[in-house]
């Protein structure tokens, strides 16, 4: 991998964001809307139920913030790719000496920057608006963020592969794919509260361990190390599978001659 090429591709996205204030606004708009809705619901429940239950609803805010980290990581990869499709620049990239690994790495970095912006905005608003301090998760935040980011990248690569294969008809998947997982990865509720048949499915995905871990940390200040181990292990597996899928689909589109039709549509 050539870091000069990765930095050139990242620079292109930075130019794009610097020239488009709406893209920057979009980074914060939906997370803030979600946070305000969930924050108000939390306040409402806290005021109208017994204090013990009230403290539990803070899990909603924690879940919502961490979910958004994963979603932004996925978007960083998928939307960066779509930016090239929308601007008809894909062909220029594919005929330049850019390896798929360099292209994907650049989208990962853009994903990280998007996460950083979103996380700062959400932490700030949740603290000042709802007295929810995301830093109560202390150092656990780092492995939480890392694991969710890795799974977001995997989903981003899968979304990109599907768009590569089916063209812009599959564009909506860039937004929809993370939400396929939301019901089963226990973002807002515990795995034990889910229907029995769905629990084994939940444990197949790294975010489940992270969201369960987050609730443990918020409740007792400690976390099950096994959760982190399982999440990291599964993330390596999903990243490898998603990377393989992306390269396989890219080669398939080359074999079938779909790439140019897709790149200039």
């Amino acid at each position: 991998m050539n870091f000069r090429i990765i930095s050139a591709l990242v620079m292109r996205y930075l130019f794009l964001y610097s020239r488009s204030p709406m893209r920057l606004v979009e980074l914060a708009f939906w997370p803030v809307v979600d946070l305000v809705v969930w924050g108000n619901v939390t306040v409402f429940i806290q005021k109208n139920t017994n204090p013990e239950f009230g403290s539990y609803v803070l899990f909603f805010l924690g879940g919502m913030i961490l979910w958004d980290i994963m979603f932004r990581a996925q978007q960083g990869v998928a939307i960066s790719f779509l930016e090239d499709v929308w601007t008809r620049n894909l062909l220029n990239i594919f005929v330049a000496p850019v390896r798929s690994s360099e292209y994907i790495s650049a989208t990962f970095i853009v994903g990280m920057l998007r996460i950083l912006i979103t996380a700062v905005v959400l932490s700030f608003i949740s603290w000042f608006g709802y007295a929810f301090n995301v830093f109560q998760l202390s150092w656990w935040l780092i492995p939480f963020f890392l694991n969710l980011m890795l799974f977001g990248w995997s989903l981003g690569m899968i979304s990109t592969a599907l768009i590569l294969r089916w063209g812009l008809a599959a564009e909506s998947l860039a937004w929809a794919i993370p939400f396929f997982f939301q019901p089963v990865v226990a973002v807002f509720y515990r795995v034990e509260d889910m229907p029995a048949w769905s629990r084994p499915i939940a444990w197949c995905f790294p975010p489940t361990y992270i969201f369960e871990g987050m609730r443990d940390v918020m409740k007792s200040g400690t976390m099950n190390w096994d959760y982190l181990g399982y999440a990291a292990g599964l993330n390596i597996l999903y990243l490898a599978l998603a990377g393989w899928l992306f390269v396989w689909v890219l080669n398939l589109t080359r074999k079938r001659g779909l790439l140019t039709k897709f790149a200039t549509q």
Partner: peptide, 26 residues
């Protein structure tokens, strides 16, 4: 290198920005 009437450089970037990105890639 390659140039085609049917491809474009990203439209919302300034000309120098687009060219600088490709200069770095190469």
């Amino acid at each position: 290198n390659f140039s085609s009437a049917y491809t474009a450089l990203p439209g919302n970037l300034l000309v120098w920005q687009n060219l600088l990105v490709f200069a770095r890639i190469y």
